[in-house]
Structure formats: structure tokens, C-alpha cells
Simulated assay, not measured.
Amino acid sequence: MQAPRSLSWPVALAALALAGPARADEHPIALQTPTGTLNGTLHLPQDTKPAAVVLIVAGSGPTDRDGNNPLAGRNDSLKMLAQALARSGYASVRYDKRGIGQSGAAGGDESALRLDTYVDDAAAWVDKLNASGRYPAVAVAGHSEGALIGMLAAQRGKVASFISLAGSADGLGALLRKQLASQLPPDLAVANERVLQSLEQGKPTADVPAPLLSLYRPSVQPYLISSLRYQPARELGKLNVPVLLVQGTTDIQVGVEQARALQAAKPDACLAIIPGMNHLLKEVAADLPAQQRSYGDPALPLHGELPATLAGFLRKPCQPPGKVTAG
């Protein structure tokens, strides 16, 4: 693998991407599905025709279109992302996934939800945007678990490019083992491994200790089974469109090694490692108190290097070998 080379286009475009306050128009947009309406926001740049439209796919859990999660707090990261894209001349659509926010009525029973349901929805949004005839191109940007959803949707539809924001290369099984390794006492660690192995084999289990029920309750096991069968690195390698992998060095949820593993699976992907950027795409120190505060601070802006990095890629997707590093 070649050594990373300098990322020049973010520097050249930084003034354009970051200049002035966001001047844009927001409009409601909806996607009709067989099981209900998904509601979102169309964010248009003002005084200019969009160079493209970016579908923004939010991360896991009850995270809404703006990047906010009621379990963690309001940070407005994805709303800020849409504003940054508009400043650079790009339209965007961000939406509440089914069962979340204004798409709550489309959620249905939790036991019926699958990761593939979210993928179907994202692919339908791509089709809707292409069918509108309003945009020269449609790109997909997925954040965290949304990166997996976005790349699977990008495999199906007419997509000009794909952007992974703090996406993992490892599958859900590896992530759960890593995250829980230091949190569970020995007896629960053994039980966790037993439950996880059963789900990885596609077998629901009723034998779940009470302390683990919030994670492995029976109604969520079908979703976990559907997600456990995907390995993001393998799925990324199937894409035949330009790819940008964006990862921050102070992300305490997804490490830089995950972005490098994704690039190893798709060597022509462009890799942008942004110093000091955390999982919320903001400039935050690596210490835990600062990280925790950022999840409930909507006044904290996006990392200064991110908008230009995205704008540069969207204007001129990197070509092979594509091994570049921001910062």
C-alpha cells in the first residue's frame, strides 16, 4: 500500500466552503413507503443551482435527521453538515428514519424492523431524487451505522459517489465485543458471548440475562440478526463509484484503524483523516468529559476542515491510488 499523499483540494477550496453565513432554503420533503411516510428536510443552496444533491443517512438508534439522539442530547451535527454543503453549492436531503422523529408512524412493530428495511428506504430516497430531474447527480453520505446503510443503498441505485463519515469496517459482532469487553463482569461477558454467537448463527434466543435485555431484548433480536450478517469492509469493496472515507482522530467510538481497514478493502477510495475530529464531526479533545459535553452542545460547530474536505471530493472525486490524508 502506498504511503498517504497530501490532500491539496480542501486547502484550495476552504475559503469557498467556509465563507460567510449559510444562505440556504429549507423545505419539507417526504417519501411514501408501503408502511408509512418518511419525513425529511431538503436543504437548497441559495442563489445558485445545486451542483448535486447529497442524501444524508443518520447513525444508529433513535438518531434523527439533525444528528440528535434523545438518549445522548442535542448536537445538530447533521443539520450543520447540510448547512455546510449548502454553502459549497450542494443540496442535501436528511430524513428521520422510520420509527424516529416525524417518521415515527412508519415504524411499526420493533420486531418487524430489519437493517434491510433502512436500506430499502435509503435506496428509495435515491430513486426519488434521481427521478425528480432537478439534480445533475446524487451522492450518498452515511454517518456511523448510516455508512453501512448508505453503502448498501448505493449498491442498488444510480449514485455518483459515496461518503463514509466515521463508518466502521468491522461488522456489528466485532463492534459489540470490543465495546463491551471492558464493561461486563466475567459472568455477563460469558453470557454476552453465548447470546451473540446464537444471533450470529441466525438463531434468536430467550436465554438473555436481565442486565443484557436492553441490548438483546427479543423484539430487537431480528434486527440484530439482520445486521450481523453484513461486514462493511466487504460491502464497500462492491461499490464501483468514487468513495471518500472520513475519520477523525479523536473519535472514541470508531477508531482511525477502521477507516484504514475500509480503504484496504477498496484501495481506490480516498481517505481523509482529520486531526481532532470526534464522532460527531466536531473538533473535540480526546478526553472523556469533553467528548460527553459535545453530545449535548448544539453551539459547537463542525470541525473546520470537514466542509472543504467534502466539497473538494464532491467537485473532483479522487482517482486511484486515492490514498490521501487531510490535516
Rank of each mutant, 00 (worst) to 15 (best):
residue 1 M to K: 04
residue 7 L to Q: 08
residue 11 V to A: 10
residue 13 L to R: 06
residue 19 A to T: 10
residue 20 G to W: 15
residue 22 A to I: 11
residue 40 G to K: 01
residue 41 T to H: 00
residue 42 L to S: 09
residue 53 V to Y: 08
residue 53 V to P: 03
residue 54 V to K: 07
residue 56 I to L: 14
residue 57 V to W: 08
residue 57 V to E: 14
residue 58 A to K: 02
residue 61 G to W: 08
residue 61 G to H: 12
residue 61 G to P: 12
residue 65 R to Y: 01
residue 74 R to T: 15
residue 75 N to I: 00
residue 76 D to G: 07
residue 76 D to C: 08
residue 80 M to D: 12
residue 83 Q to F: 10
residue 84 A to M: 09
residue 87 R to N: 07
residue 89 G to H: 02
residue 91 A to E: 09
residue 93 V to C: 00
residue 93 V to R: 01
residue 101 G to R: 00
residue 101 G to V: 09
residue 106 A to I: 04
residue 106 A to Q: 05
residue 111 S to R: 13
residue 111 S to W: 06
residue 115 L to T: 07
residue 117 T to F: 10
residue 122 A to V: 14
residue 126 V to Q: 14
residue 136 P to I: 12
residue 140 V to H: 07
residue 141 A to Y: 14
residue 150 G to K: 11
residue 151 M to K: 05
residue 156 R to G: 01
residue 168 S to E: 07
residue 169 A to G: 14
residue 169 A to Q: 07
residue 173 G to I: 00
residue 174 A to R: 00
residue 175 L to Y: 02
residue 176 L to P: 02
residue 182 S to Y: 11
residue 192 N to R: 02
residue 193 E to Y: 05
residue 195 V to C: 12
residue 196 L to A: 08
residue 197 Q to S: 15
residue 198 S to Y: 03
residue 201 Q to L: 12
residue 207 D to Q: 10
residue 211 P to G: 08
residue 213 L to S: 11
residue 215 L to N: 08
residue 219 S to Q: 11
residue 221 Q to F: 07
residue 223 Y to R: 06
residue 227 S to Y: 11
residue 227 S to D: 11
residue 228 L to P: 11
residue 237 G to H: 04
residue 243 V to D: 05
residue 244 L to G: 01
residue 249 T to L: 04
residue 253 Q to C: 05
residue 255 G to M: 11
residue 256 V to E: 12
residue 260 R to M: 05
residue 260 R to H: 04
residue 262 L to P: 04
residue 265 A to R: 01
residue 266 K to C: 13
residue 273 I to R: 01
residue 274 I to V: 12
residue 275 P to F: 00
residue 281 L to D: 09
residue 285 A to D: 09
residue 288 L to Y: 10
residue 289 P to W: 08
residue 291 Q to A: 08
residue 293 R to W: 08
residue 297 D to L: 06
residue 298 P to Q: 03
residue 303 H to W: 05
residue 309 T to Q: 11
residue 310 L to T: 07
residue 310 L to G: 09
residue 315 R to A: 06
residue 316 K to R: 15
residue 319 Q to S: 14
residue 321 P to F: 14
residue 324 V to G: 00
